[in-house]
Design a protein around this nucleic acid. Sequence first.
DNA 1: AAGTGGTCTAGACCACTGC
DNA 2: CAGTGGTCTAGACCACTTG
Lengths: 254, 254
Amino acid sequence: MDAEVDRLSLFSATPLEATQGKPLYRVVEDHIRNLITTGRLIPGDLIPSESQLAKALGVSPGTVKKAITNLVWEQLLFRHQGKGTYVSRVDFEKSLFRFFSYGDAEGRSIRIHKETTARRRQPGPADICKRLGVATESDLVYIERVGLIGEQPVLVEYSWWPATVVPGLEDESIHIPDYLYALVLDQYGVPIVRAQETLTADAADAKTAKMLGIAKGTPVVVLKRTTYTQGDRIVEVRTTKGRADRFSYKTEIR
Amino acid sequence: MDAEVDRLSLFSATPLEATQGKPLYRVVEDHIRNLITTGRLIPGDLIPSESQLAKALGVSPGTVKKAITNLVWEQLLFRHQGKGTYVSRVDFEKSLFRFFSYGDAEGRSIRIHKETTARRRQPGPADICKRLGVATESDLVYIERVGLIGEQPVLVEYSWWPATVVPGLEDESIHIPDYLYALVLDQYGVPIVRAQETLTADAADAKTAKMLGIAKGTPVVVLKRTTYTQGDRIVEVRTTKGRADRFSYKTEIR
DNA sequence: AAGTGGTCTAGACCACTGC
DNA sequence: CAGTGGTCTAGACCACTTG
């Protein structure tokens, strides 16, 4: 009860600021979006019902519905009929990553199992520190994993975190599950809010080639990810390199 | 006037078939989508106004608006306030292709100029005929082009068309512009309605390597396109191979 | 001025979830 | 059962486009 009332107060507090030309539904939209990016609403939260919101904000239910519909389109929220509207969890099914080894001839998606091959704490290389937005030589935690389909390695992951964000993560005694972000949320209370990915192809360097069991210089797909927590703070930079022959990306143009 | 009335009759004719559980707005949506994929409405066409549609179909304006909003969201239609709602043209800006050589350090998009390096009519290879959905050994038109940025070749295009669709296109006297599809529409009245693209990386074969001025085996990005005209008929299959170092694809995950 | 889409309201009824 | 989102209606008023 308390939590619910409290959550609703997040909305009633502000009686909708300066509307300056913006449509009403946009104002409602931005207001909710704001609560999410500032972390006052976090992934998994139930937001007040449409009718409650309409009353609290003093607008018609249709306007609230339209605002929410837009946010659902953006996948920032999702609705569940009869239950309510929730803040989305980050959907790494949308990662370009999923185009690795998609469809084993029957089109079924294949599970990639991951194994940790190295982890340590060390002063970060200059380029990584820059991407993370921390001072050069800052202490970072480095995690290196291989992705396997069955026994065959198909990708390698090089991941860097500021040591201040995940202190002790380099410790061998902490088991790293396939979904690293679940661990980071559990152990350090750091929720992953969004990520950016860039894709290119390149020739395999010696180390990567060895880990993937391919010849040096063979084409690999390179996926660089920057991972964000609340307030647009970067918490991880990651480079994934995978066998190009296990990757394919499809789109439809209209 | 005549055209307008005629266009409206496309809608009034059918008084909305079997609704079997489908929401009304979905029925309206499907109806319009159908008129487009069957070619009774073509890219660029103005469709009747929302209020006209509502009357013609016997539903409320709000329902028509919702249906159209969804189709606009799908980019099948676009609205222009005060003018009306139109059928979208195919937007090859959405091609994966555009991720080649994006941003010349200043982020400006660079123009890729194309030059035709080969064109002929010949019995098609088995795999190409299969992808085109025509009989093996059918006569095809083959067009080969290089994409250049300034003087530097960055990609090669291998394009195949059924000879029945574009008879005489192999003739040297026909000038091929950068946008091949504009020519095909002008000369043969074949509108391109949609396309599918698949992206992978591979090692450059000897021919491609030579054309791109890179070493054989160097990574190239491979883009396979299947191009459709009205009624889901395949009219072209195309393979584009480009230098991996001139390609980068970006997304945002939430 | 007439017609278009864009916004906003105010309600009715339904289907689904939970207690 | 009460509460949620999902659908659908019917209208008002505005901003933009065209003749």
